[in-house]
């Protein structure tokens, strides 16, 4: 029996989701503030020992790849690997911690992480802030976690239909829930007061309308998910490419088959480089 969820029914239980890490919202608010430096970042992060441990684990992984000694605190790690990169690690580690609370399949987190990396790579030659691209990629499927958290039985049914019957994901979600994970994700992102561009990117990442795909961050998130699914990173039975928006490609200056080669190569190499840091 379909659930026939409505936007108001979704909104009614958003406060029952595990609390979104306040640090992320705080750091997003500071992205355009040039006065924020490594000391500010390190002080904010070190209030949370679990997060600090996770950040140091990832930062030291990077340092070891560069044949350098381990850092023992976030400030030292930031001074070795740079402010922008440590900030990205903070975003990724905080969101990884959050997603782990749902005890969902580990491949879900890997998919979010590779989509985040791909989005950041696609943002390289645009005006989109690289951290906005990373966050939109990391959170693009957050609506799916809501489905899993509040309706585990129906979510398993969706998974089963995807894996066994090979049906298109949005169609299956509509038939089981009455809405899809993009609409739910939009509600969650609004509730968390994420920037409007990130809310729009989460809402439209699957099948963006012509208007939506004119927005660079939506185009990036749409293409990022399609690329990691098409490249099969991580390898998942339910990786699907259903539709690639011409407008999204145009927004990002991709007109020809050849334009994709360096994008695909750099995304795959960066995913190999960075995914070992976040298990």
């Amino acid at each position: 029996m379909p659930l026939e969820l409505t936007v108001s029914r979704i909104a009614a239980n958003l406060d029952r989701l595990p609390a979104f890490p306040p640090l992320i919202a705080e750091l997003i608010g500071l992205l355009d503030d040039d006065e924020v430096n490594m000391v500010t970042l390190a002080r904010k992060v070190e209030r949370d020992p679990v997060l600090t441990g996770r950040i140091l684990y990832a930062a030291n992984g990077l340092l070891r790849l560069d044949y350098r000694a381990d850092a023992r605190d976030v400030y030292t790690a930031a001074s070795y690997i740079g402010f922008a990169r440590i900030r990205d690690i903070v975003f990724a580690a905080s969101i990884a911690n959050y997603i782990n609370k749902f005890k969902h399949n580990p491949s879900f987190w890997k998919h979010c992480l590779t989509a985040g990396i791909a989005a950041q790579e696609l943002a390289r030659n645009t005006n989109v802030h690289p951290s906005h691209a990373l966050i939109a990629g990391l959170l693009h499927d957050i609506g799916w976690l809501w489905m899993f958290y509040f309706h585990p039985f129906e979510s398993q049914q969706v998974r089963l239909r995807l894996e066994v019957h090979n049906e298109p994901v949005l169609d299956v979600e509509h038939s089981m829930f009455g809405v899809n994970h993009c609409i739910i994700g939009q509600q969650i992102a609004q509730y968390w007061k994420l920037p409007q561009e990130i809310v729009a990117a989460i809402a439209h990442h699957h099948i963006p309308s012509e208007t939506a795909a004119n927005d660079a961050l939506t185009a990036i998130t749409h293409l990022a998910e399609n690329i990691v699914n098409a490249l099969d990173i991580p390898c998942r039975d339910d990786n699907q490419v259903q539709y690639v928006s011409a407008t999204a490609c145009r927004t990002l200056g991709i007109d020809r088959v050849e334009d994709f080669f360096p994008i695909l190569g750099s995304i795959e190499a960066r995913c190999k480089y960075l995914t070992i840091l976040f298990h």
Binding site: P168, N229, A230, Q242, Y243, V244, V257, F260
Partner: peptide
């Protein structure tokens, strides 16, 4: 992976060609 894609759509076809290449 492309089992549900509309391969008559020129952009989806271009994307498929890029990944295959």
């Amino acid at each position: 992976i492309f089992r549900h894609a509309d391969m008559n759509d020129p952009t989806t076809r271009m994307f498929h060609a890029a990944i295959l290449g």
